[in-house]
């Protein structure tokens, strides 16, 4: 698959109600953040999966609730930023 880099944004930039397909994750160097990203992968934020932002928090639109398959996850924008997605047209 050719990465469509110009269309890829991080999940925290996806607007409310916006759908997208996971393109990949950024693996950080910091150990604690690496563990977090590993957990995101284990929860299913892997390339090819469809995601949708279904809620945003009241203050600075943080945290967000993301629908992934049959599961909803709450995460802060800081965590969502590790996930790269391709927004659906």
């Amino acid at each position: 698959m050719i990465p469509e880099s110009e269309r890829t944004i991080s999940l925290d930039q996806l607007p409310e109600e916006g759908s997208a397909t996971v393109a990949g994750v950024t693996v950080p160097t910091d150990a604690a953040e690496r563990t977090l990203v590993l957990r995101l992968l284990e929860l299913g934020f892997v390339p090819g999966e469809r995601v949708q932002v279904i809620h945003e928090g009241r203050h600075r639109r943080d945290p967000i609730a993301v629908r992934l398959g049959h599961t909803t996850f709450a995460l802060r924008r800081h965590e969502a930023a590790f996930i790269q997605v391709t927004p659906s047209a």
Binding site: D30, R39, F73
Partner: peptide, 9 residues
């Protein structure tokens, strides 16, 4: 470090 929220609803 910033604390994560990451939880299932």
């Amino acid at each position: 470090a910033r604390s994560p929220l990451l939880m299932e609803l």
